[in-house]
Simulated assay, not measured.
Amino acid sequence: MTVTLPEGDWVRGITVQQPYATCILTGAKTIENRPRRWSWRGWMLLHAGQRTDAAALGLPLVAHTIRGRELTTGAVLGIAHLVDCHQDPDGSPPCTPWAHPGTWHLVLTDVQELPLPVPATGQLGPWQPTPELLTRVFEQLPGFRP
């Protein structure tokens, strides 16, 4: 089945280290911490970078969330809708247990995991996926409607 995708700037990619990419895919981690504010909003391809944060594997919150899951790297694993970017006010509790103080929190909703990872190269910051990559990703999500 051919998926007709909209034209224009409606989708970007975000590269996230493992195990955090998998934590987002499970639906447990609803934010992604970044050092700078992002003004862009829309659909994001969730790309697992080549690196795995080995120290994070020992964190109880992470270990519980990824238990029994494969930690694929170097591939697009799913999509999510980026709906907000904020910082927690000074002195307030974190917005989620996943929030790191002093960082900007990308709020992700409507997370959908792909049936099969799509090998790809990501980069820092929001990146523009190629038409070929979009085709390979959205062939796996025939019911997707942006």
Score class of each variant (00 low, 15 high):
Ala75Val: 00
Gly49Cys: 03
Gln87Asp: 08
Leu133Thr: 07
Trp98His: 13
Ala55Pro: 01
Arg145His: 10
Asn33Thr: 12
Ile24Pro: 02
Thr103Trp: 15
Leu25Phe: 03
Arg67Asn: 10
Gln112Trp: 14
Arg37Phe: 02
Ala55Ser: 10
Phe138Asp: 00
Trp98Pro: 05
Pro97Arg: 01
Thr15Cys: 04
Ala80Trp: 02
Arg145Gly: 09
Cys85Ser: 07
Leu77Trp: 09
Glu113Arg: 15
Thr109Gly: 09
Trp10Asn: 09
Asp84Ala: 10
Gly91Cys: 04
Arg69Leu: 13
Gly125Ile: 01
Val62His: 01
Pro94Lys: 05
Glu70Cys: 08
Glu7Leu: 12
Cys23Trp: 00
Gly125Thr: 03
Leu82Asp: 06
His100Lys: 15
His100Cys: 11
Leu59Gly: 04
Met44Lys: 04
Val107Gly: 10
Asp90Arg: 13
Pro131Asp: 04
Leu141Phe: 11
Glu113Ile: 08
Gly49His: 00
Thr30Arg: 15
Cys85Gly: 08
Ala48Glu: 02
Ile79Asp: 04
Val107Gln: 14
Tyr20Asp: 08
Pro97Cys: 07
Thr15Pro: 01
Ser92His: 15
Leu114Tyr: 02
Thr26Ala: 15
Thr121His: 09
Arg36Gln: 12
Pro115Asn: 12
Val83Ile: 13
Val111Leu: 04
His47Pro: 10
Asp110Ala: 14
Ala99Lys: 04
Pro97His: 11
Phe138Leu: 01
Gly27Ile: 01
Thr4Lys: 11
Val137Ser: 00
His105Leu: 15
Asp9Ile: 02
Pro93Asn: 07
Leu114Met: 02
Leu141Asn: 03
Leu141Met: 09
Ala54Pro: 00
Leu5Tyr: 05
Asn33Leu: 11
His47Leu: 02
Pro131Phe: 05
Arg34Glu: 03
Leu5Val: 05
Arg136Gly: 00
Glu132Asn: 12
Glu113Tyr: 09
Ala54Asn: 06
Pro119Trp: 05
Pro115Thr: 01
Pro131Ile: 02
Val62Thr: 00
Ile31Glu: 01
Leu82Ile: 06
Pro94Cys: 15
Ala55Trp: 04
Ser39Pro: 04
Trp43Tyr: 11
Pro94Trp: 04
Pro94Asn: 02
Thr2Leu: 13
Ala54Gly: 02
Gly8Cys: 01
Phe138Gly: 00
Thr96Met: 13
Gln18Glu: 05
Gln17Thr: 14
Gly68Phe: 03
Glu32Gln: 09
Ala63Leu: 07
Arg145Thr: 11
Val3Asn: 07
Gly78Ala: 06
Gly58Trp: 05
Glu70Val: 13
Leu45Arg: 01
Val83Leu: 10
Lys29Cys: 11
Gln140Arg: 12
Glu32Trp: 00
Pro35Met: 10
Cys95Gly: 13
Gly143Asn: 12
Cys85Glu: 08
Thr65Tyr: 10
Gln50Tyr: 10
Tyr20Leu: 13
Pro35Asp: 07
Thr15Phe: 08
Gly91Asn: 03
Glu32Lys: 10
Trp98Asn: 04
Val118Ser: 02
Glu70Trp: 08
Ala99Asp: 14
Pro126Thr: 15
Ala55Asn: 06
Tyr20Gln: 12
Pro94Ile: 14
